[in-house]
Every structure is written in C-alpha cells, then in structure tokens.
Design a protein around this nucleic acid. Structure first.
Lengths: 235, 235
DNA sequence: TTAATTTATTTGTAGTACATATTAATCTGA
DNA sequence: TCAGATTAATATGTACTACAAATAAATTAA
C-alpha cells in the first residue's frame, strides 16, 4: 500500500538491519550519530528522526556524551502514549476492557504453574486489610491490588506491564458502581481458597462469577455501539 | 525516574495537548510545520521529530503540500514494528505465546455473546475441509483459520488485530510438532458442538483440553529461563 | 589516595537553504 | 466554452552548519 516510505522510515529499518547484521547485543553502544549518519549515507537530521522513532519503541536509549545504547524493546512503550493521550475511541476502550476480563479468566493455568507461598500470603494480607475497612475508596484500591497480584503471580512480565497500563486507563475512565462489592457472587477469600486447593478449571469458573459485576457493568460503561463487522486484515 | 524528557518528547505531548484543547477532530489538518513550530516555540527540526514520533503511533499522517492530518491511533502500530524487527527476546516471545493461550480460553463468554450463524457456518466449513485432507501443511493453515475465526467471532476488533500480529510472529517462529493433530484431546468438531449447545464454562474447559499440545509444547519452544521475579512498576 | 577542576566528546537544538512533490491557477488550442 | 497541458505557488522532505549543554574522562590539587 504505502510504497514510498519517508527516508527517516527507511533509515529506521536500515538501522535495525544494521544492528542485527553487526550482531549488536543489548547494552552495546551504536556508532555516534555523525558516524552512523555517514555510514547510512544520510544527514544527521534524518538519522536523528529515525533514532527518535526507535527510541519511542524502546529499542534504544540515548544519553549525552555516552551515546546510543541498545535496550530491550518494550512492547507497550507506544501503547502507553496512546492510552494516556486521551484520544482513544470508545470502541477501542471497550475492546481493552473486554480483553482484561478475558485475561483474568484465562490466566488460571499459569497461576497454578507459578503458585508460590509469598504470593498467596500477599493475597491473604490484602483480604485481611479488606476485612478491616469499610471505606469504599480504600476497598477499590485493595481490589486493584488483589487482581494486580494475580497478574504478577502469572509469571508473565509482559502481561503484568499490560495490566498496569490498563489500570491507569480504567481507574480514571471507568468508575465503579456503588454496589459492586455487595453484588459480587464470589469473594476474594473464595478465590484464594480455590488457588490453594482447587484446579485451574474451578478457578476459571469462580473468577467468571467474581467478575460478574464487571460483565454487567459493561453496557452502561460502553453504550451500545453500532455493530460493525470485523474487517479483514489488509496487506 | 527519567525526569528530564528531551524537548522533542515534551513537544510530542504538547502537540497532543494542543490537539485536544483546540478540539481537533479526526481528519482535521494541523497548522503547517513552520507555524506549529512557532506556536510551540521550538525549531522546526524538533517539531518534526515530535511529529515523527506521533506518526509512528498512528496519530497523524503527513503528505507533501497537503500537510498534517489527524488519524485514529492504531494501538498495534509500534507493536508491529517490534514484532517484525526480529529483536524480540525469548522471554517476551514466551510471554506473548502464553497470552494468546489465555485469551483463547478466556474469550468464551464473548463468543456466546456474539454468536452468529454465519460464524458457526464458517467454522463448520473449515472442519469439513479438514476432514478432506491429510496434508500436514494444509491442516496447519486450516487450524489457524479456525482459531482466527473464533477471534473474529469474539466481536473484539482490537483482539482480532492483535491475534493477526501474533499469527505472523509464531508462524515463522514456533513450528508445530508433527503429532500435534493426533494428540489433541478435543477436536474442532467438539468445540463447535459446544459453541452451538453448550455454556461458556464448558467451552473454556474444552478449549483448555484442545490446547493441551500447545501447553506441553511450551517448554521445548521456550527453554527454561532464569526465573527473574517480576519487577515492580517504576514511576 | 581522594576530591575538585578542567577538558574533550557526544548528543541536543536552532537557523537557513534548497529539493521535491502536489495542489491550484493559468494558459493554449480546438 | 472547455479539456488538456503548462506554470506557479506552497508545504513537506532533506541537508548542512554552528553552537549549547551535559557528562565521562583526564588532570590537577589537597
């Protein structure tokens, strides 16, 4: 489709190619800007634009005098900018909300795979704190902490990072109903008990019931959209 | 942590702020580069770097003479670059592989929510094609089509786009074992039958069994990594 | 040896000039 | 009058140069 990439975009790819061809490893320093610009045959302005694009993707980090070093690209680097820009449309917002529900239910197997005492104890402590307060705001915070701990327990760093992003997104956007705590069918205690002695299948069922208020809340949070059919992937 | 953002990064945010304050809509044109540079009080070089960053995130598109117009940010824009760069580390790769498994199991409720005859017929047709071939490569393609159809059926566009990305990633990276089809406990037929007459809970259990080869395959695909504890989110 | 100071280097920013593509306006010829 | 070709105007794309700012490394002083 978009045949004619701008030079900066071409250079962006050339740099990635250059990196892999030269066998650069994480933490290695790239040639300084002037050199790299000459190597790739472009002006420093263009090179810097390309580097800037790579920086936003988390491929590199640059510091004055020290130069440009390779870093592990953070998948959610750009994600974050979009989420916090406030320009995300409602449909995408609802999509992400749904994805989070899917993940919390679908992560069961990995929770049992990486089950450790310390996590179970963390959960236990959170529950105890919950039992000691009636403050709605405090309870919401503890609820987030409980689920956040589960994400951490899944042993999946990318997933945990993703969840952190969504937390900040929905914390501001999706306020809870006043009765969310009351209407929950399955409590945190029950979930923990199942984590200790139950099976992934049982946990999934329980988590689905635990999240019932979220499922019910969805229609009010995201008013009916015109159901456009999912488009085929182009390219 | 990283207090001092580079000017280009600051301008990037300023532009987003400027857009939302001025009430720009999708498709609207921004002021031309020279003007915008003056408005924001920076040189055109810096402005262009910021614009370039916004372009990679899908916020804007620019064309010669026509200027800069606002577009809908694609959440997976940067994602795609990273995945196709070939620099993704094994750990992140495994993380994504796991996430996909979670999603396939966790999406059950949404499949029933958006169940439509046309999707069920699509699935039926794929199964029939599967029954008519023994070619391993062909069967793999059909398997991908079957699961892809489920993602589409979930009614979640972002999810569908995400799955498409992962497909291309794992198609090249994660070849299947020869016996994957034989060892599957639950067939596509069974899944479809449950979709027609069963419950989300039943589907989750069935899907977990259907994916058993994927779960078993994981250790060979992603050899044991040093289990680093998940780090706390900074900032 | 350690702390303070200087220097050398590399990224960060600005300004200017020109190339290039594309829209808009103008001209030409039937 | 109007279609098609030509020209002009304009905004982005690219390059070059110069200098500011930060900081690692070298040097000096205590």
């Amino acid at each position: 489709m978009q045949k004619d990439l701008t030079l900066a975009e071409q250079i962006e790819r050339k740099i990635l190619k250059y990196i892999s061809e030269k066998g650069y490893q994480l933490g290695d320093a790239l040639p300084k800007e002037n050199e790299l610009a000459e190597i790739l045959g472009v002006s420093r302005v263009v090179l810097r634009e390309a580097l800037s694009r790579l920086r936003i993707l988390g491929f590199i980090e640059t510091k004055r005098k020290r130069g440009t070093v390779l870093t592990s690209p953070n998948i959610f680097y750009g994600f974050k900018t979009i989420l916090s820009s406030g320009t995300l449309d409602k449909d995408s917002m609802k999509d992400l909300y749904e994805v989070r529900l899917m993940l919390e239910i679908g992560m069961a197997d990995f929770l049992y795979l990486h089950k450790e005492e310390r996590y179970l104890n963390d959960l236990q402590r959170i529950i105890e704190e919950e039992n000691m307060t009636v403050d709605s705001e405090q309870l919401t915070k503890l609820d987030i902490r409980f689920h956040s701990t589960l994400y951490k327990m899944s042993g999946n760093k990318s997933l945990y990072a993703f969840q952190n992003l969504l937390n900040t997104l929905f914390a501001t956007y999706a306020p809870r109903r006043k009765d969310w705590k009351v209407k929950q069918i399955i409590s945190h205690e029950s979930l923990l008990e199942i984590l200790r002695c139950g099976t992934p299948d049982a946990f999934r069922t329980a988590m689905r019931l635990h999240l019932n208020t979220r499922f019910e809340n969805m229609d009010t949070l995201f008013p009916a959209k015109v159901s456009k059919p999912v488009e085929e992937e182009e390219e």
